[in-house]
Amino acid sequence: MNKKVVCFGEIMLRLSTPGYQRFNQSSEFKATYGGGEANVAVSLANYGLQSDFVTRLPKNDLARACEMDLKKYGVSTDNIIYGGDRLGIYFLETGAVSRGSKVVYDRANSAVSQIEAGMIDWDQVFENATWFHWTGITPAISQGAADACLEAIKKANEKGITVSCDLNFRKNLWKYGKTAGEVMPELVAGTDIILGNEEDAAMVLGIHPDGLDVTSGHVTAEAYLSVSQKIMKEYPRCKKVITTLRGSINANHNSWAGVLYDGETLFKSNNTYQITHIVDRVGGGDSFMGGLIYGLLTYAGDDQKALNFAVAASCLKHTVFGDYNQVSVEEVEKLMDGDASGRVSR
């Protein structure tokens, strides 16, 4: 039976400068689409799962193009609702070596920011659903988006649907009068699978790890055990806490691994990948989440294999332009099995 995963959040028009050009150099932008939850939905569709993306879009040609783009990758848009005046936009300048990438948002008053509880028929959305995914970006957009997200989580809990969250703290988005610490705990309380790093845990949940100095340049997987244990103690519904381990040597070279804690065992990915020539790191965390959801659903009971799949999938995402991770299960499993040669397949 095909497993249906529902993702809810905002999708935006992405306008990026060509190559490594700076904003003030470029006379043109490359137009694609992306957003945390939509990126996860595309990953899952690529892996052959039934993937449903839910959002609110305006009735205009840009939004129509966006919806067609999602359909092209196999994502269901049947439960998108319409209203509002505009699609959010973000501008991307890709960094190189010691110059980091930059993002400028133009998403104020977007259609999904004006959503309200009661606008989406969650009973219909969750028909035959196995999994619901949200991120901390959505409740940061507006009170209405936070209310709609909480409504979805409660309905998913009622129906016995697994709920996952990427905490994704974005300080520049919390502008409507409430902090992440005021809004997020109630939503996290209804969540079964939590992805987040030590900064997310501190800024979103007020949970701080013991003896972890992330500025030291050397952070072991075991250092994250304390924060995972604290999250599970504070939020007893939570069954797994996962953290990506990114070492940023420079804008083009990152190390990449991950850890998963299930309440008893701290699993560390079998491989730590050296991504030496990054094409596009935007969406890296979303590709990890997509890989993790696929792994947990497909390799049921084998958390180690699910974690390994997520890390390999997100490693490959760094080689793909755009927000979406356009790779197949076969490509991910090939890397999992140790083939990182990148040889031509013919």
Rank of each mutant, 00 (worst) to 15 (best):
I115E: 00
T55W: 08
D147E: 12
D106A: 09
P58R: 02
E93D: 11
E93C: 00
G84Y: 07
V112K: 07
A111Q: 06
I153Y: 01
G144Q: 10
D69R: 09
G84W: 05
D85F: 05
L187M: 12
A108W: 05
F126P: 06
I141A: 06
E67S: 07
L167C: 04
N157M: 01
K171H: 14
G160I: 09
A117P: 06
T130F: 13
K171Y: 14
F126E: 07
E93N: 13
K102A: 11
W174N: 01
V97A: 01
V75K: 05
V188I: 11
Y105F: 13
T94G: 06
W122S: 06
G136I: 01
F169A: 03
K59A: 09
L57F: 15
G190D: 09
T135N: 10
F132L: 14
V75E: 05
W174A: 08
F91Y: 14
G160E: 07
L187D: 00
P58H: 08
D52H: 13
L70Q: 05
A140M: 07
I137H: 14
G74N: 01
D61S: 11
A152C: 01
C66I: 01
T130D: 15
T162I: 15
Y90M: 09
K178R: 15
S51F: 12
L62R: 03
F126Y: 08
T55S: 15
T179L: 02
Y73G: 00
M119G: 03
L70M: 10
T77L: 03
F126C: 07
D121M: 10
M184H: 03
N79H: 15
I161D: 01
M119E: 14
I153M: 06
C149H: 02
K102S: 14
D52I: 13
L87Y: 02
A65V: 03
G136M: 04
V188Y: 00
I137E: 08
L62G: 04
G177K: 12
E158H: 13
I137S: 11
S142T: 02
P139T: 03
V112D: 04
I81V: 15
V103L: 13
A148H: 02
Y176L: 11
G136F: 00
R107T: 00
R86G: 06
G83Y: 03
E186A: 14
S101G: 15
V54C: 12
A117H: 11
E127Y: 11
A117G: 13
V188R: 00
T162F: 14
I120E: 06
H133Y: 08
K171P: 15
G88W: 02
G181Y: 00
P185I: 04
F169W: 15
Y105K: 12
G136R: 03
K175R: 15
V112F: 15
N128V: 12
M184D: 00
T55K: 06
Q124Y: 10
G88D: 10
P185K: 01
K178F: 11
A180K: 01
K175I: 10
I89E: 03
L62S: 03
G84P: 07
Q143C: 05
N157A: 04
